[in-house]
Amino acid sequence: MNRQEQALARLAERYPVMGALPRSAQQRLLETGHWARVPAGGLLFDDHQGCEGFPFVIEGSVRVVKSAPNGRELPLYRVAAGETCIISSSCLLGREPYNARGIAEADTVLMLLPKDEFDALLAEPAFRDFVFHLFADRIANLMQLVEEVAFHRLDQRLAALLLGKGRILHVTHQQLADELGSVREFVSRLLKGFAAQGLVKPSREQIEILDPAGLRRVASGSHDS
């Protein structure tokens, strides 16, 4: 197996759509794609930066966030290996700069498909269906995020977040705040209240869940009734 065949096999393992493309399209993709390795914490793209191509994440993961002028961040979604970035797709289709920031959560390997080749591949039904299916999935997730931020109180969202991380969480208050799009002081205040109710036991960079049923009541809002 030569180098290009190895690259195609690696891509197809993460993105099965590659196997559905005509051989000529596969060849163009391999000839024009740029492979890159980004260390953990590295910036892949930033607000107002021009979009250079369509990323295929082979290893690692990317956190996509919206940043405010005061430094606060609202996490939008994560792009794991085998997934793709809807904001990159949107910027390429609309020929607009990025309106969010992408940060490598771990050492990340990706292949960047240049925008001209992205446009050409949209003529292939398999690739076009792949891109628009991505839009449908990500928009549904973003609508869920909007609903949570708009209609759920922070204590409910924090309780639900804690329940999704196991009995003992090795996490800081700042990390929880980042995931919730809030600030550390609010999260610390809520955790102190949860501790007073016997729901959790916070310690340095660790939170133990003591009463999962009680947290579920908080998450559902039924503790108010």
Rank of each mutant, 00 (worst) to 15 (best):
I58V: 13
I58H: 09
V38N: 06
L169C: 15
L162I: 11
I207Y: 01
D224T: 14
P125D: 07
G33Q: 11
G41R: 00
R217I: 04
G193W: 14
M143E: 14
D129M: 07
S90W: 02
P125M: 00
A25C: 12
L44G: 09
T84P: 03
A68Q: 14
Y77F: 13
Q6A: 13
K192E: 06
K192F: 07
E148A: 11
A150C: 15
A40E: 10
A196G: 12
L176H: 03
D224E: 15
R63H: 05
L11V: 09
L121T: 03
E83G: 06
G164M: 06
A7K: 15
D137T: 09
G221E: 11
F194E: 02
E185I: 13
A9I: 00
L29W: 08
F127C: 10
R63I: 01
F132I: 04
A177R: 07
D116H: 09
F132R: 05
V109A: 09
E59P: 03
F194W: 03
S225L: 11
R101V: 14
P75V: 09
F135L: 07
M1P: 11
H170A: 11
K115W: 12
E179G: 00
I168D: 12
L30S: 10
N2I: 01
D155A: 13
L210Y: 12
